[in-house]
C-alpha cells in the first residue's frame, strides 16, 4: 500500500561561501547556534545522522542516513522520526544543493518522499522557512533567530 507523497522546495540566497554553509549544516557546534539542534554524524555515505536538541536533555528529534555527500555542493540525507528509524519506508528525504550565485550562494532544500498530510509533513513546512531564515541571518549578520519562538512570547523584542 503506497500513500501519497509530497515535496517541498525551499530556496534562499545567502551571502556566504558554499563551504561556510555546508559547515553550518554539518558541524554540530555551528548548527546549534541557529537551529537549536546539532546534526551529528561522521557524514560518510551510509552512516547514520541524528538531529539532537542542543540542551541538557539532548533529545534526538530526527534520525536518518547519509545518502550522498559532495561537499560543499550537495548533501542528501534521509529523515525520519527516531521511533521509525528502522522502517526505511517511513523515511523522507532531504537534499541540500549549494550553487554559487554572483556573490551569494543559492541554497535549495528539497524535502521529498513525505507522506502527504502526515505530522512530519506539517511539521517540516513550519520548520524549514524558520531554520533557513535563521541560517541566512546567522551567516550574514551573526544574529540567528529564535527557532523555538512561539507567537505567545511575552517578552518584548529588545
Amino acid at each position: 500500500m503506497t500513500k501519497e507523497k509530497t515535496t517541498f522546495v525551499y530556496v534562499t540566497f545567502i551571502r556566504a561561501t558554499p563551504e561556510k554553509i555546508f559547515e553550518a549544516i554539518t558541524r554540530p557546534e555551528i548548527a546549534a547556534r541557529y537551529w537549536g539542534h546539532e546534526n551529528v554524524s561522521d557524514w560518510k555515505v551510509g552512516s547514520k545522522w541524528e538531529h539532537v536538541r542542543d540542551n541538557d536533555e539532548r533529545k534526538v528529534n530526527i534520525a536518518g542516513n547519509v545518502l550522498e555527500v559532495d561537499a560543499p555542493n550537495r548533501l542528501v540525507i534521509s529523515w525520519s522520526d527516531p521511533s521509525e528509524y528502522d522502517l526505511p519506508e517511513k523515511h523522507s528525504r532531504v537534499t541540500f544543493d549549494l550553487v554559487p550565485y554572483e556573490d551569494m550562494v543559492k541554497l535549495t532544500v528539497t524535502h521529498d518522499e513525505l507522506e502527504t498530510g502526515s505530522g512530519m509533513a506539517i511539521g517540516v513546512t513550519r520548520g524549514w522557512p524558520l531554520v533557513l531564515s535563521s541560517l541566512k541571518s546567522y551567516l550574514e549578520t551573526d544574529e540567528p533567530m529564535d527557532v523555538f519562538a512561539q507567537p505567545c512570547a511575552t517578552e518584548s523584542a529588545a
Partner: peptide, 13 residues
C-alpha cells in the same frame, strides 16, 4: 512550481 515561503518568513521576522 513550488511555493517558497522563506522570504515571507524573513518579512515576518
Amino acid at each position: 512550481h513550488f511555493l517558497n515561503p522563506v522570504p515571507l518568513q524573513m518579512v515576518y521576522e
